[in-house]
């Protein structure tokens, strides 16, 4: 039966499914128990699954990810919650040097199926360290899968697939979209869901392609709607590592123009990588260089300036205009 869920609730429901399906699935993090996490994504899980499976950890991110690795080596499937994007970094050593490399170091003998959930991105008027978009650090690290969800439906399936994956998964949750509501078919089976690493055409179009992911998918769709002269296709990337280049290239070959949108800073971001790859694969189909509409190469600004920092409808339309100016 379908029901209307917020994106946050969809992840909660997906986690619940994963925990019911597999007793080895654990949830761990700061304030995940009684409080249900600061965004309530783990709401009610400790009550229903007990404190052994929903672990309130000491306040230490390196400890969270490090012990999750140990639990995974012992056969568990921990889902770690990092409270905010800016607080991931104490866990960088455990994630980049350990979690990402254990499969290779053990010549494939060891598996560490850890999921690290991180509410990420800006737009909620927060104080510093609460609005970062750190995806490029993760996508630049071999051994990690990096996914994000733009809709409740996607979030519901993706979290279950992330838990089921034998690879470590960085699961980026667009925090400003936590309260977006949509229909989710919670009766369908997991195997029927699209693969975790498949991009999705969120809006078909023929004149230009926007590639976006996470919080920017909604903004990109709004921009596409607002453009009354041109027929814009919007692709929701969903997986940032690996990237589904087939879906992207297929679109660009039809439209000839591409604008990549993300909140993270421009330089060395996911957009630059997509631009390079699309240029290699679709060179003769391109009518214009690939445009990027991104955050600036600055620290995330104080909240009173974030509306200027974050790509919005106008800036995306400006990017499309630039693509058509060729």
């Amino acid at each position: 039966m379908g029901s209307k869920l917020t994106l946050g609730r969809a992840i909660n429901t997906g986690l619940r499914q994963a925990m019911e399906a597999d007793p080895k699935v654990l949830v761990m993090g700061e304030d995940v128990g009684k409080l249900g996490g600061v965004f309530r994504v783990t709401d009610g899980l400790q009550k229903d699954f007990g404190a052994d499976r929903v672990i309130d950890t000491p306040l230490a991110e390196s400890g969270i990810v490090g012990t999750a690795i140990g639990l995974a080596l012992r056969g568990y499937r921990p889902v770690c919650e990092i409270q905010f994007d800016g607080f991931f970094f104490p866990a960088a050593n455990q994630t980049f040097s350990q979690l990402a490399k254990i499969r290779r170091r053990s010549a494939g003998v060891l598996s560490v199926p850890v999921v690290i959930r991180i509410p990420y991105g800006g737009g909620i008027g927060a104080v510093e360290h609460h609005s970062e978009s750190p995806e490029a650090y993760f996508t630049h690290t071999a051994g990690l899968r990096v996914v994000t969800a733009a809709t409740p439906e996607d979030a519901y399936w993706a979290i279950q697939q992330a838990v089921a994956s034998d690879d470590p998964v960085i699961f980026l949750e667009p925090k400003r979209r936590y309260y977006e509501k949509a229909e989710v078919d919670t009766d369908a089976t997991l195997s029927a869901a699209p693969p975790l690493d498949a991009a999705r055409v969120a809006r078909p179009g023929s004149d230009a392609t926007i590639v976006a992911y996470g919080p920017m998918v909604k903004t990109a769709l709004q921009a596409a709607e607002a453009d009354t002269e041109r027929d814009i296709e919007v692709i929701d990337l969903r997986s940032l590592a690996p990237i589904d280049y087939d879906t992207v290239a297929d679109s660009v070959r039809r439209t000839g123009r591409l604008v990549v949108v993300h909140e993270a800073p421009l330089t060395n971001g996911v957009g630059g990588e997509i631009s390079a790859r699309v240029t290699e694969e679709c060179f003769y189909h391109l009518e214009a260089p690939v445009m990027r509409v991104c955050g600036f190469d600055t620290p995330y600004p104080q909240s009173r300036l974030e509306e200027y920092y974050l790509p919005d409808l106008d800036r995306i339309l400006d990017g499309i205009d630039r693509a058509f100016a060729y």
Partner: peptide
């Protein structure tokens, strides 16, 4: 409230070509 172009202030001590260019582009925008 700060000014929009304040986003580009105080990122580096020395002039920085990325920042300078982005500031100029954004001002024009």
């Amino acid at each position: 409230d700060p000014e929009p172009l304040d986003i580009f202030r105080e990122v580096y001590a020395e002039p920085n070509s990325h920042i300078d260019r982005q500031r100029a582009d954004f001002a024009e925008y």
